[in-house]
Amino acid sequence: MKKPLLHVLLPAAAGVAFLAVWQGAHLSLSEDSRFLLPSPGGVWQAMLDHRESLIRATLNTAEGALAGFGLAVVVSTVISVLLSLSPWVRRAFYPYLMALQMTPLPVLAPICVIWVGAGLKSVALLTFVISFFPLVVNTTQGLISTDRHLVELFQLYGARPWQNLVLLRIPAALPYFFTGLRIAATIAPIGAVVADMNAGTSAGDGGGLGFRAVIFASQAKYAALFATAVTTCVLGFLLNALVLLIAWISLHHWHDSYERTDR
């Protein structure tokens, strides 16, 4: 009973301490430069003041992030299966997958805008690009790392290629896939926000969090800018929590990483 309580109390205490330091830093600034670091209360107030636009922006960004993230999961899984077929395929295509990752989003953003127009589609597409790489690298690695002895077991009992894939290689690759998924879930919201700053639009529903940040900054609404940052953070946490939950559901029965060490 003691431990779970501690698990909640410790981060809560750290959070309170953090807010106190923040408040202290805010108060330590001279009266006329306090706008540079709004107080926690000020940020909270800004959040309430702008809640409608922030909620709408969050939903827009979440939509773009989830669409791009989801697309990346599907496409990377298919590509990983193809890449896992032979080392030659991997050798041929890996450099180009790398190249995709090496190109910064702000450079890709205008290209996306030309292709699919500014707004949700571009945000989704750019999130897809940034989420894709960690997924494909990890999943491919997982698919080619199947225990040799298990492969022989399947060979011995005359497994067909699809049985090898579905009953052996894909389940064996799951822990790797989830490693990629956790990295992707961390960068997808960031990607979506950066994409929104570069390829977002206020047309229609007023854009996402990135677009909001650009607007608030240009209007010198610093407390609102901080509120946007906090909101972005919360969105990222939620996506990560979702992924951790799915990973737990899929792996905790059998994978060593979920082994309880205290028994």
């Binding site: 225990d147 002895h149 298990l150 022989e152 994978h255």
Partner: peptide, 9 residues
Amino acid sequence: FQEANLLPW
């Protein structure tokens, strides 16, 4: 086999 080689999942 030498190892049990069970599918852990």
